[in-house]
């Protein structure tokens, strides 16, 4: 049975915090803005929690909201103006001593190349790298499977070329 109280919500967030972090990280490089984006995603997930349809995978719902919020996220002022209460500090974080995780050169390059893609392409490749099937990607994005397949091939080719350029 799927309950909609805040305790269940926190469990869902804890179990899927990686999705939120990775999506936010792909759309927002600046650390301060990324913190805000993560907060905004969690806030919107909470506001939509009651609408979650369990016939869909939980991850499909989370990706939809996280990507929709990230793509529409322009700057923190736009959100600050909407909320009168003070916003809590960092919600999902990497402890300082664990930060070298992201200091892998190849991973750095991959993330840089992903951020250079346009918003929709970024969503496609992120969902692909996350191991979603083409049907799942199509459901999340609202495209046909054939369309997703073409896009994934094109974006993979672009990334391959970018890596080839730096390895020359």
């Amino acid at each position: 049975m799927f309950t909609r109280d805040s305790t269940s919500f926190l469990k869902v967030i804890d179990a899927n915090k990686g999705i939120i972090y990775k999506v936010a990280n792909s759309y927002c490089r600046d650390e301060e803005n990324r913190k805000d984006l993560i907060q905004e995603i969690i806030l919107q997930l909470w506001l939509s929690f009651s609408k979650y349809d369990p016939s869909f995978k939980l991850s499909t719902w989370m990706y939809r909201i996280a990507l929709n919020v990230s793509i529409s996220f322009y700057r923190k002022e736009s959100r600050r103006g909407r909320i009168n209460q003070p916003f809590p500090e960092e919600i999902i974080s990497l402890p300082a001593e664990k930060l070298p995780i992201e200091q892998n050169e190849e991973l750095d390059m991959l993330q840089k190349f992903i951020r250079e893609l346009k918003e929709i392409d970024r969503a496609v490749i992120l969902l692909y790298l996350e191991g979603n099937s083409q049907q799942e990607i199509a459901d999340i994005l609202g495209l046909t499977v054939a369309n997703v397949s073409t896009k994934v091939s094109r974006i993979k080719q672009t990334l391959k070329q970018k890596f080839a350029t730096i390895n020359r």
Partner: peptide, 20 residues
């Protein structure tokens, strides 16, 4: 390694705001 600050996350559920 990712850490969820449950207290801060819980505060989010108490914020009064409608939608995006």
């Amino acid at each position: 390694n990712l850490v969820l600050n449950r207290q801060n996350a819980e505060e989010i559920t108490k914020i009064k705001v409608k939608s995006l």
